[in-house]
């Protein structure tokens, strides 16, 4: 079925690929290469004294209980963000897909949050949930629910999950809505004629047909939770209280940028890179098999 375009020679295809290859080389391969190189070095902040230390940085990272705690935080955080963001988006998409008055307006409004920068979104959430100046934070405290994200690790985690997931709902919403609209109406009508109630129609017809979208979004959301939530965490909690909201990416930042400990930070980045590559491969190999296309 697929139409294949064959180029004569290699010059033209290489030329056409060149911009993308250049971007990949400059913005991915080069920094990644430097990170791998740096991860086997021990260096002072100023770069004046450098020593090759082999895998010692990696050994120290794995032996560090704080790093293992951050790994656990990351697992919890990513699962919660992906679950919440996709669940909420699916509910909203199903509702917005119904033929109701002003559906277009709802859709536009639901897409808006995606345009807000992560740090700005985090500040908005902070204004809502700050224990002494936040609207909701104060209301909670006034009603006898002790709310303090500066000291309560669980509450701080809940807050960053909420803020990070909210940012991603719009993105998921767009894809779910497109996925829903691509489902042929005839299939749904046939199911309805066979006597399937709306809930049953959703779980037996709509949801399986949405699975390619869901699978794609799962990958995107996990990568988002791993890498793109730095700004949110930085502005909301700074990894605290204690280390309750410190994820792996945040720890790599703290180690490298705040503590100017480049060797350890590079080792952590390399480990992160391996984790994400592995995660993506597992998803494509095993999860994809069970997806209906």
């Amino acid at each position: 079925m697929q139409r294949r375009v064959i180029f004569n020679g290699t010059a033209l295809p290489l030329l056409l690929l060149a911009p993308q290859l250049a971007v990949t080389a400059v913005f991915f391969l080069w920094p990644a290469g430097v990170a791998v190189y740096q991860s086997v070095l021990q260096q002072d902040a100023w770069g004046l004294r450098t020593e090759f230390v082999g895998l010692r940085n990696f050994a120290e990272v794995f032996a560090d209980p704080d790093w293992r705690a951050a790994a656990w935080n990351t697992a919890l955080f990513s699962a919660a963000v992906a679950g919440l963001a996709m669940g909420a988006a699916l509910v909203l998409a199903v509702q917005a897909d119904k033929s109701i008055r002003g559906a277009r307006a709802y859709r536009t409004l639901l897409i808006w949050p995606y345009a807000v920068a992560p740090a700005v979104a985090a500040v908005l959430w902070l204004f809502l949930f700050h224990p002494s100046i936040g609207l909701i934070g104060r209301a909670l405290n006034a009603n006898g629910i002790p709310w303090d994200t500066r000291l309560n690790g669980g509450q701080a985690m809940a807050l960053v999950v909420l803020a990070a997931a909210w940012k991603q709902v719009s993105y998921n919403f767009i894809f779910f809505l497109a996925g829903l609209q691509a489902i042929p109406k005839s299939v749904l009508e046939a199911a309805a004629i066979d006597g399937a109630r709306p809930v049953r129609r959703f779980w037996t017809v709509v949801f399986p047909l949405l699975s390619p979208t869901t699978f794609f979004l799962l990958v995107v959301n996990l990568v988002y939770a791993f890498f793109d939530t730095f700004g949110t965490i930085h502005a909301l909690t700074g990894g605290g209280p204690g280390k309750a909201t410190e994820t792996l990416i945040y720890k790599a930042y703290v180690e490298g940028v705040q503590n100017t400990n480049l060797g350890s930070s590079a080792a952590q980045s390399v480990i992160l890179m391996v984790i994400v590559v592995a995660l993506t491969m597992v998803q494509f190999r095993f999860v994809e098999r069970r997806v209906h296309y």
Binding site: G240, P241, V254
Partner: peptide, 21 residues
């Protein structure tokens, strides 16, 4: 040396203690 990091460690451990840990 590295006192920026140590000061943060002090704050983190104080936070853990205030959480009742």
């Amino acid at each position: 040396g590295g006192y920026v990091e140590i000061r943060n460690i002090i704050q983190e451990e104080m936070e853990k203690a205030f959480q009742g840990q």
